[in-house]
Amino acid sequence: MDRTTSTEINNIMKQYGMKANFFEKYGKSFKVSTSEGNFALKRISPYTGTGFVKNVQLLYHRGYNRIVPIYPTLDGRYAVLDEQYLYYLMPWLPNEEKEDRSEKHQKMFRELARLHTLSVKEVQITKEQRKEHFDQTNEQWVRETEFFEEFLERSEQKWYMSPFELMFCTFFQDIIQALNFSKKQLEQWYEDSKDVEKGRTVVVHGKVSTEHFLYDERGYGYFTNFENSKVTSPINDLLPFLARTLNTYPKRLDDSVDWLYTYLGHFPFREDEKRLFLGYLAHPGPIYRIVEEYFFKKTKKSEMKYVKQLQRNYWLLKNTEYVVMRINQIAAQKTNAENSGPS
């Protein structure tokens, strides 16, 4: 239960040289009204720390300013520790949306591409590092294939399969097809890049969402909530977003494909990045985890809950399959157009 009081809020605002007239709670943030204006006071776990502030400062240094700024306290700190929480202060943006959902996503992905473009850096990657990544990932995916095959065999040997086992057997071919596709992309990635000695890193936001893309009074979009940001491959911003977006009932998610190509139009992937991205995107990890949990009885869920979770993960698999198929179709059309162009 949240027991934050006006006294606690004022104790924090004093660190910024201000007094709170009143405040309202919005999720993990507070809208704090002062004589200097309205501010957003974000509350986070102290274990999160303030390391993400360095990434925000790095982006500013590289010329990317579409970030909701984090204000320092009077003594230069970027967060205040009070009781069991850390608090940091930002301006309050009105976030009045004047376009539909698809347009907001288009703007967000254009900004994400610009964020990645301005923070991109080439780093040295040895042949040994690439081989180690390939060997570890390939070995894991081979083990998963063997586990799925064993679970199928055990299920089919029974006189009466459980509802979960019956559903798994029904889905088996699609699951293995996705896993084989992922392994093929991984193998192609390694073949294409094993002699390439450089890779690209960017500052990834860490939790891309329209909830973390806010509008100011002029209608400009700004990213907020960089608490999960880090310097890594750009695919680590796209994969979690797509996993959340595609986790719904089966449907043609052409909007997701459009948003992805909005991003790629401004920050194109290299061929090896595209292979790795498609391999991880298509990988049926959620299905593996729920089948493993069921097999080893790791939790006390009911059979019905297991069946529902397997069903939802299968829907995710099919939605992902559609997106991957569309990406490959678009790539093939582009290649054919280039090959049939004027000589």
Rank of each mutant, 00 (worst) to 15 (best):
residue 299 T to S: 13
residue 260 L to E: 03
residue 278 L to I: 03
residue 285 G to S: 12
residue 289 R to L: 14
residue 295 F to I: 02
residue 280 Y to F: 11
residue 288 Y to K: 12
residue 306 Y to M: 11
residue 280 Y to D: 14
residue 303 E to P: 06
residue 253 L to W: 02
residue 302 S to D: 09
residue 286 P to L: 03
residue 265 G to L: 02
residue 272 D to L: 04
residue 260 L to D: 05
residue 299 T to E: 12
residue 287 I to C: 04
residue 298 K to W: 15
residue 289 R to K: 13
residue 260 L to P: 05
residue 277 F to R: 07
residue 264 L to H: 00
residue 305 K to C: 07
residue 297 K to L: 12
residue 273 E to N: 01
residue 264 L to G: 01
residue 286 P to K: 09
residue 303 E to S: 11
residue 264 L to T: 00
residue 262 T to F: 06
residue 286 P to Y: 02
residue 303 E to I: 09
residue 295 F to L: 02
residue 273 E to Q: 02
residue 275 R to I: 00
residue 270 R to P: 01
residue 278 L to W: 06
residue 259 W to M: 15
residue 302 S to V: 07
residue 254 D to V: 07
residue 297 K to G: 12
residue 260 L to W: 01
residue 306 Y to I: 10
residue 252 R to C: 00
residue 289 R to G: 09
residue 279 G to A: 08
residue 264 L to S: 01
residue 266 H to I: 07
residue 258 D to S: 08
residue 254 D to S: 10
residue 278 L to D: 06
residue 258 D to H: 09
residue 252 R to V: 01
residue 259 W to H: 13
residue 261 Y to S: 03
residue 292 E to H: 15
residue 288 Y to V: 02
residue 282 A to M: 06
residue 275 R to G: 00
residue 256 S to D: 05
residue 307 V to D: 04
residue 296 F to R: 15
residue 292 E to M: 14
residue 270 R to V: 03
